[in-house]
Design a binder for these strands. Structure first.
Length: 750
DNA sequence: AGCACGCCGACT
DNA sequence: GTCGGCGTGCTC
């Protein structure tokens, strides 16, 4: 009898599938979408069954080893969705499927697959052997000495680390019969720690009467839901316009029709408050939350609830777009402009775009909401691909905050540091403090000073491994690299000319916090950035404490920019609005506009009117000016006009190819070789596809690796895909150990 | 990505 | 000769 054949998408960075034989004992069990354990070369890895071909060209097929957790199977729709991602983003289908798995399964299986080593002979024998080979094979001796101390299996990596020895030594020790390779011992199931309990919320018993704008928006959305077809609706609503209320009503309608909903939010906004808002608003407890803070046990419970259809609504960040929800009726992507929807490691996908594709595949509506929509989404709306719905007034009776732009000048950067806070801002701060109201100050840079330089020779202190100026942190008197985390004490004198005393320039949040404490001794200051916030717990508590009025002033970076409603904040200060404006990135201007608008939106969300002070060196720059005046549409028109002649998105599509190697010469050669391949492919294409570069990346070296990039630019995505075929057969490691990453629709050029 | 194989210098 | 460092190529 001919055994059945199965096509497997393997969890390896290879852009093709492999065929396997299904052994008799599994023949009745293995189905489409099942995850299986397979032999792959000399090792065993996982993969997902994606087809049952009737025959195979491959002469000698290996059999599948094992069927893994059959209860967790990808349905036809998720297979189709993940395959689309693999094709579109030029990544391995198997890796996308792996990323789409519930995290507990993903991680647990990884553990089981790594090799564990256990000694095969008594400890004294191992020590004796180690003694004998000490001279001839010191690393094997080290491995033996270490294994002699262990009675139980040890992960291979552990042996290498503790030995210390290389992988080869471990392999040899096994081959020579000193030890054996085993599977991981079954890990004890972690204790039944429940979900972190949500703190009681001040339930604002506001009567929820919809604003006329909201009513109008809802009418369109309602029609879309009823139409039972794919529609993409962009909700452009000013900060505080009550977008969430609109989502809630739309979801209500979907749930009432017996269908289920999905809400994607940026990682940072996924707080118990957000979840509670949906739970209370919809009056259902069957809300499933997918959060990186959940315990393994809790996550497994959530996933099961989703799969079994017990969860009516799923809320989560990026990877929740893969949640196996049946009868999905609506997808909501909140803050669609947020950069955290793009995964910045392989497989690189954008969850917002995947959400739209998922909705299209299912023939259901999807809502994209933002106060500052991306140019891509606005463009899609203006050319009719998406429907546009506006919420132009705040939901409460209060007006948008008044915004004042203050020009910074050279004179403000006096050594005393007093100039960080202009007289205008200082006046507002004092006034707000007197009124016993709260203040939020935003600066997108952490640390005390952002670079250290010598006043005599101009030397700027840089990281040894990265092409980046070191940031000075006063709390531990260190000079740190924000790219690789490398930390060194900061030198007392210039390393170049030995002049004592490096000048500390550029301002970070730590400096602001220090200055504030000195200037307003009666005020209490909270600083929230990656230096003070070690985990979500700390951030959540910090924000809660601030909301409860325990602090007068909150100073922070990105993480305080969005999502939170602080009713008592009447003053928002942006210390330097143009920190990101001059980055060599075509999205720098758009991001600056979004950031200023979002931060300004934190002001005046309660009863009292808000005021915003925007300090900037470029008050006339349109990003700052339009943001200050709240003119979103005008900004979008202007920025579109800037991008059109350059063919940047949304007028064209981009692919960034990032190449890295410690060896600069090898890197340059490889970059030229790749560019050559792509140019040849592009010259044969019907549509013009430009290959820009190779050129050194804006940050030319990170962690000791030099970086070059190649940019592909074309009118359509299809032609880029065509050109990228040239790399199809290539190993992702490239020649001479040069690493390569392909980034489709890159979020950042850096 | 892993992992083996194979070629080469260093050391016994 | 043996060990182990690294470049090259394959994985149904």
């Amino acid at each position: 009898m001919v055994r059945p054949i199965v096509e497997v998408a393997v969890n390896a960075p290879l852009l093709r599938n492999f065929h396997y034989e299904v052994p008799d004992e599994l023949a009745q069990k293995v189905e489409l979408g099942h995850r299986v354990l397979i032999p792959f070369g000399p090792r065993t890895i996982t993969g997902v069954c994606v087809g049952f071909p009737s025959e195979s060209e491959v002469p000698k097929l290996k059999p599948i080893r094992e069927l893994l957790h059959p209860e967790c199977r990808f349905d036809a729709h998720l297979l189709e969705l993940t395959r689309w991602i693999a094709t579109y983003y030029h990544v391995s289908w198997g890796e996308v499927l792996e990323a789409a798995l519930p995290p507990p399964i993903r991680s647990r299986q990884r553990e089981a697959v790594v090799a564990w080593i256990e000694r095969a002979r008594p400890a004294p024998e191992l020590r004796e052997g180690a003694q004998r080979m000490l001279k001839k094979a010191p690393s094997m001796a080290a491995a033996l000495t270490f294994l002699a101390t262990k009675d139980a299996p040890v992960p291979c990596a552990e042996v290498m680390r503790q030995g210390p020895c290389g992988r080869d030594a471990v392999t040899r020790v096994v081959r020579d019969g000193w030890a054996v390779e085993t599977r991981a011992p079954r890990p004890a199931v972690a204790g039944g720690a429940g979900a972190p309990e949500a703190p009681p919320l001040p339930s604002d018993g506001k009567p929820l009467v919809l604003h006329p704008d909201q009513e109008k928006a809802l009418t369109s959305i309602s029609a879309a839901i009823t139409s039972d077809a794919f529609r993409c609706i962009l909700i452009q609503g000013v900060t505080g316009s009550g977008k969430t209320e609109v989502y809630l009503r739309a979801l209500r309608q979907v749930l009432d029709a017996g269908k289920r909903g999905m809400v994607l939010v940026p990682e940072i906004s996924l707080t118990p408050q957000t979840v509670l808002r949906f739970q209370q608003g919809l009056g259902v407890d069957s809300v499933s939350v997918l959060h990186s803070m959940l315990t393994v046990v809790e996550r497994r419970r959530q996933w099961k609830a989703i799969q079994e259809g017990r969860a009516k609504l799923v809320i989560g960040a990026r990877s929740s777009v893969f949640a196996p929800i049946q009868d999905l009726g609506l997808i909501v992507v909140d803050e669609e402009h947020d950069g955290s929807y793009k995964q910045e490691s392989s497989p690189r996908y954008n969850a917002r775009d995947v959400a739209v594709v998922r909705a299209r595949m299912l023939g259901i509506p999807v809502l994209l909401g933002s106060a500052t929509p991306t140019l891509e989404s606005s463009w899609n709306a203006s050319c009719g691909k998406y429907e546009l719905v506006r919420l132009s007034r705040r939901a409460t009776s209060h007006d948008l905050p008044t915004v004042q732009t203050v020009a910074l000048g050279k004179e403000f950067y006096r050594p005393s540091g007093s100039g960080l806070i202009t007289d205008t801002l200082d006046y507002r701060i004092r006034k707000t403090l007197r009124a016993k109201e709260q203040i939020l100050l935003f600066l997108n840079r952490r640390g005390f000073s952002t670079y250290l330089h010598c006043l005599r020779c101009g030397f700027v202190l840089k990281c040894e491994d990265c092409d980046i100026a070191l940031t000075f942190h006063r709390r531990d008197d260190s000079a740190r690299c924000h790219y690789c985390g490398h930390n060194r004490g900061f030198p007392r004198e210039c390393p170049d000319c030995q002049m004592p005393g490096l000048r500390r320039s550029g301002v970070g949040t730590e400096r602001i916090a220090t200055v504030l404490k000195e200037r307003y001794p009666e005020a209490s200051v909270l600083q929230l950035d990656r230096d003070t916030v070690t985990n979500y717990q700390v951030l959540r508590e910090g924000l809660e404490q601030f909301a409860l009025g325990k602090y007068n002033l909150l100073v922070g970076t990105q993480m305080i920019a969005k999502g939170h409603d602080f009713p008592n904040v009447t003053l928002v200060g942006i210390i330097n609005a143009d920190t990101g404006l001059h980055f060599p990135d075509f999205r720098a201007v758009e991001r600056t506009f979004q950031l200023v608008t979002q931060v300004a939106g934190r002001a005046g969300r309660g009863e009292r009117p808000g005021h915003v002070v925007v300090q900037t060196f470029c008050p006339e720059h349109y990003a700052i000016d339009y943001a200050a005046r709240g003119e979103v549409d005008a900004f979008i028109q202007k920025e579109l006009a800037t991008r059109q002649p350059l063919g940047y998105p949304p007028y064209g599509r981009l692919v960034k190819i990032q190449l890295q190697s410690p060896d600069l010469e090898a890197l340059k050669q490889e970059a030229e070789r790749i560019a050559g391949l792509l140019r040849t492919a592009a010259s044969g294409a019907s549509e013009r596809c430009r290959i820009l570069g190779p050129a050194p990346s804006p940050v030319a070296r990170i962690q000791g690796k030099h970086r070059y990039q190649i940019l592909l630019k074309s009118k359509t995505h299809a032609s880029l895909t065509h050109v990228l075929q040239a790399l199809q057969g290539e190993n992702s490691r490239g020649k001479r150990g040069v690493e390569r990453q392909v980034d489709v629709d890159p979020q950042s050029m850096l």
